[in-house]
Design a protein around this nucleic acid. Structure first.
Lengths: 173, 173, 173, 173
DNA sequence: CATGAATGAGTATTCATTCAT
DNA sequence: CATGAATGAATACTCATTCAT
């Protein structure tokens, strides 16, 4: 059986992800987790502390995915891996990603710097592949990834496979 | 001189856009607009009513841009116009777009269907230009647009011009 | 009929005076005053703001008494007036004085500087009356006043008259 | 090395004395004492129980001082001893006395009856010394002591020695 | 004896909304 | 049309206290 701390983290992730951080009261989190409200503060100090804990537990997994791909040897493999990333978000991870993206629009709420390494890695890939303007290409691909994530998380189109194929072809993969 | 109703709309747009809908109290909006709090409710019934009014006034301008571009005759001109769109968001419109995007991540807060026509139009363009999978191409371009908007509104990269050029070249424009 | 703001001030004075500032919740004040809790904050910003308002309304009356006495011409009249002061606290003013004295023991809660002028005045009186050590005499009389106030407010002895007489005789009045 | 129970008592005295009883949480006491919060309740049942224990340990010392002085044979020695009392409060005892006095203003918090014997003793002294109204004299001296304690604990005047001398002269000591 | 997780009632304060003027 | 006093429900957070270990 899960510890109460984990129950709180789970409930918080789901609620923050679906209704947003501001719109989710600690009271709701406590009820969803089946614990007293006070316990949240004993474990996480503040609501923002809870948010940070929720994010931290997700960031780990995300960074792992990144780094695994970035450490591949052939640049083309890296590129493919990165592009495939948004398409491989599992259902049970949706809450986490929704939360992450919604936070990006809320200034100051949460600082995300996981993309710094990703940027570096992509830049190198485009250089290795002799693209003319690697920096611009990096920004474009990062944007595509963010946009694709948005599309998949919010609109969930049926033709994801077809989309991925077309996308890969654009990068000659 | 602006009517008090307009003052409220302006202040609400700015505040909602910078601090978010939830984090902006009607009290703050009233003070920023220099009116009494009660007046907000006389004019807009509820806080959500104010949000809807704010969005409506923005949607109008947005749709106008869309439609102007979509009504161009040459498919390539349409394509170029659409792609250029995120790059041409004016500073004073940032609040509106930030608000729009942040709302997209908050289920139920606001329903955006402005993209339906855009989707249709793009689909036709890609068909006319003989792209193999127009539906997938449409989804990709919409995603690129969302992603580019995110990039520009949140990270504001310096090499916007270069990015746009590379992007246009990808579509042979 | 009294305004709600005044009702709040009255209830706060009574409750703060009898149970102390910390032990009195804004909820209790609101209920005692027959108003909503929110109104307290609309009028006084914070609980401490309420305390300040409560004290300010009392300080005025207190300083008036002081100054009236200090402005008497004959030093002996001043001395008698000051000594009689603690004995003339009216029942309906007990809450205020209890609150004032209890606050003196709570560092930082409320800054009382009303005694500065009183000190000056007494010093002059003792000089005029050729007492050997006016400064020490002043400190002693101030202490006697504080002590008498304590005695009267907390123990309320039956022989107040007799006490006053003995006290006056000590100062040859 | 001190027992944990004593550590709790010490920390409680200091904190209660400096910040007040209400403003001091059992959590703070536990942390200051370096023990678990639960232990406080094992030893003292409740927060008020802790308060009583803190006071009791102080009352003992205080009563000892009283009784020592009251048992002196010459009435004048008793009088001098009592008057000197407030001037001989040691720095490390300040917390205790501040707490005691602040509690006197909080109805019901703590019942102080230590002064009963003191009253009796003083009454006898004034009778022995043929003062005209011993009861009134007793009340006055008790008030002076309370007032002096207040002065010393809160304002800490520099001319304490001079004050004491003048005071003793008033009682022909 | 001692801990620390857990609770439930309570805290000051905020907020959207109403309404008499 | 416009105000501002007033409300009641909600909010994040605190606290004294309990209890299993």
């Amino acid at each position: 059986m899960k510890t109460k701390k984990e129950q709180i983290l789970n409930s918080a992730l789901t609620l923050f992800g679906t209704h947003g951080f501001d719109a989710t009261s600690t009271n709701k989190v406590a009820k969803a987790a089946g614990v007293s409200e006070g316990l949240i503060f004993r474990h996480f100090q503040s609501k923002k502390g809870l948010l940070n804990a929720v994010m931290a537990s997700g960031v780990e997994r995300a960074e792992q995915s990144y780094n695994e791909i970035l450490s591949l040897k052939k640049p083309k493999d890296v590129l493919r891996g990165i592009i495939e990333l948004p398409f491989s978000i599992e259902k049970k991870e949706h809450s986490y990603w929704k939360l992450l993206y919604s936070l990006k629009w809320q200034a100051g709420e949460y600082e995300d710097n996981s993309s710094a390494q990703l940027k570096k890695g992509l830049n190198k890939v485009f250089k290795d592949l002799k693209y003319k303007d690697p920096k611009a290409e990096t920004e474009i691909l990062l944007s595509i990834m963010d946009g694709m994530a948005m599309t998949i998380l919010l609109r969930n189109p049926r033709n994801k496979k077809a989309i991925l194929e077309v996308l890969l072809k654009k990068y000659k993969l």
